[in-house]
Design a binder for these strands. Structure first.
Length: 246
DNA sequence: AGCACA
């Protein structure tokens, strides 16, 4: 069993404080401009391959963005995912995939319900200690103590399939697919010129695709969020909107 | 950079 609060005395909680295995993957260096729901869907699609995903936790707050916790139902999935997905490129960025430091609520609830209360208490304590330590540091030292962390740029995974359209890094040009034959450039222009920063639409009729260019990617991001899946043409076909491959 | 679960 787990011995009382020992683990948090030093302010550090880790997997040794638990009797349950870590069944959660911690992902960082994720593209921060992608909407949370879309990000979760993308992560699900990719990590699904390693087993059953019980939950994905991702937040937009400053301290949390660009990170996600993916909860599996067994440790095997975590080990496989860490081994194979670290460095995988999504939205143009190589994600870091690590074993989470502590088990998720979900895991404790499932595997050791008797320890759940303690798990929560431990978190409260370590959070308080962390804040106290931070406040102290801020007071003692000036804002000058910049710790240099070597950000090792791991090589991007190669050999994997080309990045799917959905995961192409956001940029100023939108790639429009499933454009019906009865939709012309003027119609598309009418749709996209309503968005700020619009420059032009280029239609490639024989391929049923088009490109909508904006002044910068922020404008393109907004336009994409508001037009993805939009029904167009006589038959109201759903238009696919992604970013142009670079 | 940043390890959470309002």
């Amino acid at each position: 069993m787990v011995d009382k609060m020992e683990g948090v005395i030093g302010g550090v909680v880790n997997s040794a404080d638990y009797s349950v295995p870590i069944e959660t993957v911690y992902v960082s260096n994720l593209e921060e401009r992608v909407k949370i729901e879309e990000l979760k869907a993308a992560l699900h699609a990719v990590f699904d391959h390693y087993g059953t995903i019980l939950d994905i936790i991702a937040k937009i707050s400053l301290k949390r963005k660009g990170q996600a916790f993916i909860v599996f139902d067994q440790q095997r999935s975590v080990l496989d995912a860490v081994e194979q997905m670290d460095g995988f490129e999504m939205y143009g960025k190589a994600m870091r995939v690590l074993i989470a430091k502590t088990p998720s609520d979900e895991t404790v609830k499932r595997k050791a319900p008797g320890e759940f209360d303690e798990h929560k208490k431990r978190r409260t304590i370590s959070k308080a200690q962390k804040e106290a330590a931070l406040a102290k540091e801020l007071q003692a030292k000036g804002p000058d103590s910049t710790a240099t962390t070597a950000t090792r740029a791991r090589p991007v995974k190669t050999g994997a399939a080309a990045i799917p359209d959905e995961y192409v890094r956001p940029n100023k040009v939108l790639f429009l697919q499933n454009i019906p034959a009865d939709v012309d450039a003027d119609t598309l222009t009418a749709i996209f010129e309503r968005f700020e920063g619009f420059k032009e639409v280029r239609l490639v009729k024989i391929r049923n695709v088009a490109f909508a260019e904006f002044e910068d990617e922020q404008f393109a991001i907004t336009a994409k969020e508001n037009t993805a899946g939009m029904a167009i043409g006589e038959e109201g076909k759903s238009m696919k909107v992604t970013y142009q491959r670079q």
